[in-house]
Design a protein around this nucleic acid. Structure first.
Lengths: 352, 352
DNA sequence: TTTATTTGCGTAAACGTTTAAGTAAAAACA
DNA sequence: TGTTTTTACTTAAACGTTTACGCAAATAAA
């Protein structure tokens, strides 16, 4: 069945030349290696005629380059990550690279395994949303001169290339937007974590709140799972019926928050204003449409690939690059100026 | 910098044994090859002591196996595909396989390139949502004894392993659900295509409609892009103001439909009932929550991997497998029993 | 005791590339 | 003219595995 694949030796033999010559022609080094135009033409003709394609495995083995990029994130199905994956694939393909991906499930153990496996497979570079506790392993990768670009979050003091967004200002802007629209009891729902992006978002919220002389109302969820999270948000909203606006600090909290708000039968835009950090594709079709902080997915991917290609071609040990991109506040109806009747309090009676 | 990696020869030399022995021990063939327990222990000890890991590249080159699976879909960022990707990655990792993915953008050309590249990289198997026009290329892959599992859609007459859902019955059930709830002018929005899953869904809708003695109202969109699609749906709804319920035949049409309905200021559940083919994570948080046909992502991935492992271990040329899974109609508030005032018609005056 | 079999290993070739080093002929230079 | 340089190629080693084959010693069978 599986017919013997054509090798460079076959080509060379049929042409009565050496594999060296064929190799040079195929890899575009013919001119610099002084191969005559006649021979170049003959090789190229036979190659296309026989539809010969070099064995990538042998090539990788010999050169150590796999033309593969390892893409490691918490969970590929999260819209933010699959969105980044889409663009990374597009750009990388254009350069002849392919993407090997795997999810860490936010586990140090699983993350370590993936890193190890990808390393053994000799991926040429890594793109990682770094889970906590994996600093040592990643440092080892970087030390072995394999380019690593981190994104979404950073580890303070961790030397690497980064592509991030301006979390603090993004959160602050969103909060100010709510303040400007007349809201005064603005809550911020985040998770109990030391992930930088979350801390920075909280910081941004606090900054805007303090600037305006308001009181912060922060809920930090110790994330165990969706059900518990929703329950915690419901409790939080019940206990703080002064709240008239709420900011959810990431895509999955937005979902849990929508669940909670739904269960409490609160009306977004009437009983409570809302902003989501991360723009999920459907948010704009809600009635009212939900205001969101949109991360520039394509720009992030672009920047990642730009740095990657730089590292892959030039030398490694240059100064580390830290790119910080801005977000776009997509203002929609869930954060329209406060109307007189707004506030959960008025509904409180019905919230049993 | 990049220190010379340990090779099997180093291990053998340090032990005063041969690479053959080390190789056998490492690959668990020691017993069948009659290596003494003493030597096995010594090899294993040194391997862990030196933290030696075989060079996967050399191994792949020698054996022709890459422990890699090619995952090819229209667009990885589509929730359906990234959801499948998540589970495929989970299961495949457990078997020591990794996933190389790329998107075809629904283009025959791009699809052919990806297929070609992945083939040259010697992926051990393919999982493909087959775009049209690529039959010949895929047939060649199958003929070369590389396992290929197709999913999401099938090509009539195309011999391969498939994992599909029961599109016809799923659409029929959803339509019947609307009929049972009192709707009589049910529209079906799909795309102009010859993709099997779309045709089957349409067939299911028609079947249920005819069974009930109703008149089908079908809109086939020649999909050029989001903007055009939304505009076509708006036109369609304006022209058919008798419609009291609508079924969108896939996830992106659901999005476009929500956009159109929003622009027309129609109220879902009041002016028009709605069902989505494909359950997007946020649909259940809409107010009213939107009824959806949910594909069993994990089951699909499970089945794909089951067949794949079977093909990868046993022989290839067994009878082709065609697995058809059932969907779950998630009944929510957007398709509640018809209320007296329902129907776009009543709103028509306002739809300029 | 002789012969056959099993046990326990080692030797060396092969997978398909790339590339350092070498060589003969042609061209340029002195 | 003889010498050097350039042109146009070839030879062969190397990358790190796996595995067919071989062989000696130990054991079993006759």
């Amino acid at each position: 069945m599986r017919e013997k694949r054509l090798s460079i030796t076959d080509i060379a033999r049929q042409l009565g030349t050496s594999t060296t010559t064929v190799s040079f022609v195929i890899n575009g080094k013919a001119r610099e290696k002084n191969i005559s135009q006649l021979l170049i033409d003959r090789v190229e003709q036979l190659v296309t005629e026989l539809n010969y394609h070099p064995n990538a495995l042998a090539k990788s083995f010999r050169t150590g380059k796999t033309m593969t990029i390892g893409f490691i994130v918490d969970e590929i199905s999260q819209p933010f990550f699959s969105g980044i994956a889409k663009y990374i694939d597009e750009k990388a393909s254009a350069f002849g690279y392919n993407i090997l991906f795997s999810s860490t499930k936010n586990s140090k153990k699983r993350g370590g395994e993936v890193l190890q496996v990808f390393n053994e497979r000799h991926v040429d570079a890594f793109i990682i949303a770094l889970p906590h506790g994996l600093e040592k392993e990643v440092r080892a990768v970087i030390a072995s001169d394999i380019p690593v670009i981190l994104f979404d979050r950073y580890i303070p003091g961790f030397e690497s290339d980064y592509v991030l967004i301006d979390n603090e200002n993004s959160a602050a802007n969103a909060t100010r937007h709510l303040i400007d629209n007349g809201f005064g009891k603005i809550a911020f729902v985040t998770i109990e974590t030391d992930q930088s992006q979350m801390l920075d978002r909280t910081k941004g919220y606090e900054k805007a709140i303090h600037e305006a002389g308001l009181t912060p109302i922060i809920k930090k969820i110790n994330y165990q799972g969706k059900t518990e999270s929703v329950a915690e948000i419901i409790d939080f909203l019940k206990q703080h019926n002064e709240i008239d606006a709420i900011v959810f600090s990431c895509n999955y909290l937005t979902m849990d928050g929508l669940d909670a708000i739904g269960q409490l039968k609160l009306k977004i835009g009437e009983d409570i204003a809302m902003v989501s950090f991360d723009d999920l594709e459907l948010l704009k079709y809600f009635v009212p449409a939900i205001t969101a902080i949109a991360q520039p997915l394509e720009q992030i991917a672009d920047k990642i690939m730009e740095i990657l290609m730089y590292r892959l071609t030039d030398n490694f040990n240059k100064n580390r690059i830290k790119a910080v991109l801005t977000t776009q506040l997509e203002i929609r109806d869930s954060s329209l100026p406060k109307i007189a009747s707004a506030g959960i309090a008025l509904k409180s009676a019905t919230i049993q």
